[in-house]
């Protein structure tokens, strides 16, 4: 699904070169739920940006869903982002002027889908997160947990190849955080690949695999025992840190 090999990312200013990722390699298989952890400044966000095709990188290669995406131009990367990747952000990142329906519609608009097809997808995604009845509400009229569920619906509506979640519960209280994590676990159980960046070890433990990044390199990984619910749908067992 996602395969990075020896990826390098350097941020340069006039005075300083910062090696955000050094010789970074990682493989995530179809249907996996992987948590990426690490201290602040370790390169988690850079990894997420590169994995989400939001940033380019200097060295190495990156294959997404079997396609080499290392040298794609901006338009092709935008198209791939739109079709293959669902984003869930810490700050929800909903557009405050658009109602829930229109927020979920955003990625579908850029795919050039017909209105009827868009509507079916949006309603299905909103029903899946239990917010179909709130489709005319503005984001400001919803709780944080509900907003994050809208963001999940937006990510799911595009039927992406995998979800990239960046601290998805970072702005939520513990109850809402648990609800959102339950929802992600359920989505993963239905076969969706999820890569989640977090600094919270408890959240990381809910994933099947935990990758730790320090100074832009994978320093450790751990495979957790599948939970009871996963035993019915066992996830791939390959050792995937290269």
């Amino acid at each position: 699904m996602l395969k990075m090999q020896s990826v390098k990312k350097i941020y340069r200013t006039d005075m300083i070169e910062t090696h955000a990722l050094r010789d970074f390699s990682l493989q995530v298989n179809q249907g996996e739920f992987v948590a990426v952890t690490g201290p602040s400044g370790s390169g988690k966000t850079t990894f997420l940006s590169i994995a989400g095709l939001l940033e380019s990188f200097e060295g190495g290669s990156y294959h997404l869903d079997g396609q080499n995406v290392s040298k794609l131009n901006d338009n092709a990367r935008s198209r791939l982002r739109n079709e293959k990747i669902g984003f869930i952000f810490q700050g929800f990142n909903l557009i405050p002027d658009l109602n829930i329906y229109d927020n979920v519609e955003v990625p579908l608009r850029y795919r050039g889908m017909k209105a009827s097809a868009r509507k079916a997808r949006i309603l299905k995604a909103l029903e899946r997160v239990g917010l179909a009845s709130r489709q005319k509400h503005l984001p400001g009229q919803l709780s944080g947990g509900q907003q994050q569920r809208v963001a999940i619906a937006r990510a799911l509506a595009g039927e992406p190849a995998f979800l990239l979640a960046d601290e998805p519960t970072g702005n939520l209280d513990s109850l809402m955080a648990r609800q959102v994590m339950d929802m992600l676990a359920e989505i993963n159980a239905q076969g969706m690949t999820i890569v989640m960046v977090t600094h919270d070890p408890d959240l990381a433990r809910r994933a099947q695999r935990n990758i730790q990044i320090v100074d832009g390199e994978v320093t450790d990984f751990e495979i957790y025992e599948p939970r009871a619910s996963r035993r019915e749908n066992p996830s791939p067992s390959a050792v995937d840190v290269l």
């Binding site: 939001l54 338009n75 935008s78 982002r81 079709e83 557009i95 850029y110 937006r154």
Partner: peptide
């Protein structure tokens, strides 16, 4: 920021 979000969700620079 909204433009950045739209870009993340698949909008090209042209769009």
């Amino acid at each position: 920021p909204e433009a950045g979000l739209r870009r993340a969700l698949g909008a090209s620079r042209g769009a």
